[in-house]
């Protein structure tokens, strides 16, 4: 019963937070481009905008084009949202605020979050649209390429903490956060951030969406609530990435004075804002450049970091 209650609260919380993250992004984007951003709906700062958007998408017509593969097309948004939300099962949101603290936590998160790529491919293939299929092919290529550096970068905290349990990893950082380990921490965090950006399809790696050439990529044929799910899943993924990043590298809920949950929330927000900042200042790079960065730079670099982490853990 407790589990069910926590699951419901968790799901509602994720949806609410994510709705306001989209608001934050639009506001942030507006400010970056000398605009005001949303301001009409909800008097101070357009605070009701995400709710209005949700209501609008709910009553929009649900168009299912003739050529689509109905099963894959209809199932894809559910698969994507399931894969991105399920990660939160084992992510602690504060000291001992977690649904189940799995002893294979890191592995579980990496395994489940990469399932979203199946949903993305289902969406692209099921749409039977040239743009969507191109986008899905590119997306799969990019996601699997960055999976390896991401997995290797997440190994560094696992070695240093000697556990895959997220609470143990946070506990191991109670004195020094992993990002402050000389060279090792910074390089691992950088690899994590770059691969996480690629996994989340954000600029500079948003070749799957590429508005100017693929219209909107694999979401082209979607409308109404199904589109909303695909779009929400992206932000849920970003939220998860920021959370996991701050748990693995930025010391989780460790910090003086403030309560544990607040520290984690602050770090997550900071990381999210960093991702927004990157998105609105950089340009998109080509697919071959994306793949080259992963296979020729990040992969050898992350293996070297891993050996460095092994040596560090052996000496100290």
């Amino acid at each position: 019963m407790n589990t069910l209650f926590y699951s419901l609260v968790l799901l509602a919380g994720i949806l609410l937070v994510v709705a306001y993250l989209t608001w934050l992004e639009r506001k942030f984007a507006g400010r970056m481009q000398s605009r005001i951003g949303p301001q009409r709906v909800g008097k101070p700062w357009g605070l009701l905008q995400p709710i209005a958007d949700g209501a609008k998408l709910l009553v929009k017509e649900d168009i299912i084009p003739q050529a689509t593969d109905k099963t894959a097309y209809n199932l894809a948004p559910i698969v994507v949202i399931l894969a991105t939300t399920l990660v939160f099962v084992t992510i602690p949101l504060g000291k001992s605020v977690v649904l189940v603290d799995l002893n294979v936590g890191v592995l579980f998160i990496l395994a489940i979050s990469s399932l979203a790529l199946i949903g993305i491919f289902m969406a692209g293939w099921g749409s039977a649209n040239k743009y969507a299929i191109l986008s899905a092919m590119r997306g799969v290529n990019q996601l699997i390429s960055y999976e390896i550096p991401l997995v290797l970068a997440c190994l560094v905290p696992v070695i240093l903490a000697g556990s895959m349990k997220l609470s143990s990893i946070v506990l191991a950082q109670s004195k020094v956060w992993f990002i402050f380990y000389p060279f090792l921490g910074q390089i691992a965090f950088l690899i994590f951030l770059v691969s996480a950006l690629a996994e989340a399809n954000r600029i500079p790696f948003d070749i799957t969406e590429a508005e100017s050439e693929l219209i909107a990529g694999y979401t082209v044929e979607y409308s109404g609530m199904k589109f909303a799910f695909l779009w929400l899943a992206e932000y849920i993924h970003l939220l998860a990435v920021s959370l996991v990043g701050s748990i693995l590298f930025l010391g989780g809920w460790n910090g003086p004075w403030l309560p544990s949950g607040l520290w984690l929330a602050l770090k997550t927000l900071l990381l999210f804002l960093l991702i927004l900042w990157i998105r609105w200042s950089l340009v998109r790079i080509r697919l071959d450049q994306i793949l080259a960065l992963s296979w020729k730079v990040l992969f050898p670099l992350s293996l070297a970091t891993l050996i460095l982490a092994g040596g560090w853990s052996f000496i100290f």
Partner: peptide, 30 residues
């Protein structure tokens, strides 16, 4: 220890299906 995962899967699936059905009912079909 894996039981809560199945609970969350169920909850999310029901939510997703429910919202899709709701939007299908509410939206115009033409």
């Amino acid at each position: 220890q894996y039981f809560p995962i199945f609970v969350l899967v169920t909850v999310v699936t029901i939510m997703a299906l429910g919202m899709l059905v709701l939007s299908h009912l509410l939206g115009r079909k033409k």
